[in-house]
């Protein structure tokens, strides 16, 4: 959907789409050319985009893609359909905490270790923001706020481990 959304800003070559995607969203993982062309082929099959007449040049033939009315409706629908909130992001940590309590292991140490790992990651993201363009900084902020939310849960559970233990041992 992101590639389709980028195409709504104007027709483009696959090569240009890849670089635009990488600049805006590829902080962690850049798109492979194979992924780009596979996605474009799928969007063609679904009538979301069409190929403009091939342009001859000095190098190999280049294909320019254009979004169709179907594609425009698809982007519109994607933009304004709220995402399903991820309420189970902490499921693994929650499970580890419960198991540690059940086997009488050190749940507090487990949570301290996770807090440290989260803060270390937040430190890296804070450092990456410095001097970054605004889009990259906004992406880092998105991650930072999610990590902060996790930490608030860790702090709350650290303070209420006894309650959690009583609850699960019933």
């Amino acid at each position: 959907m992101i590639l389709l959304g980028l195409l709504e800003t104007g027709s483009a070559y696959g090569y240009d789409l890849k670089h635009r995607y990488d600049r805006l969203f590829g902080l962690r993982k850049r798109l492979a050319f194979g992924q780009i062309y596979a996605t474009l082929a799928r969007l063609m099959r679904d009538n979301c985009i069409e190929e403009l007449a091939a342009e001859a040049g000095h190098g190999p033939e280049r294909r320019r893609y254009h979004i169709t009315d179907t594609g425009l409706r698809r982007v519109e629908s994607w933009l304004f359909t709220p995402d399903i909130p991820h309420e189970n992001l902490q499921s693994n940590l929650f499970a580890k905490t419960v198991i540690a309590l059940l086997i009488d292991d050190d749940a507090e140490r487990l949570l301290d270790g996770q807090r440290h790992a989260h803060l270390e990651r937040m430190r890296q993201l804070t450092s990456e923001k410095r001097g970054a363009d605004f889009a990259t900084a906004a992406l880092c902020d998105h991650a930072l706020f999610h990590l902060e939310a996790d930490l608030r849960w860790i702090d709350l559970i650290s303070a209420r481990l006894r309650d959690l233990r009583e609850s699960i041992e019933r």
Binding site: D112, H118, L119, R123, L125, T126, L151, D155
Partner: peptide, 24 residues
């Protein structure tokens, strides 16, 4: 108590019940 503020630090220590409890 703000993790985003703590993220500017080189390291953190956690005080709990009057002791530094973190193993870090």
């Amino acid at each position: 108590h703000d993790a985003r503020t703590a993220a500017y630090a080189d390291r953190e220590v956690i005080v709990r019940d009057g002791q530094i409890r973190s193993g870090f």
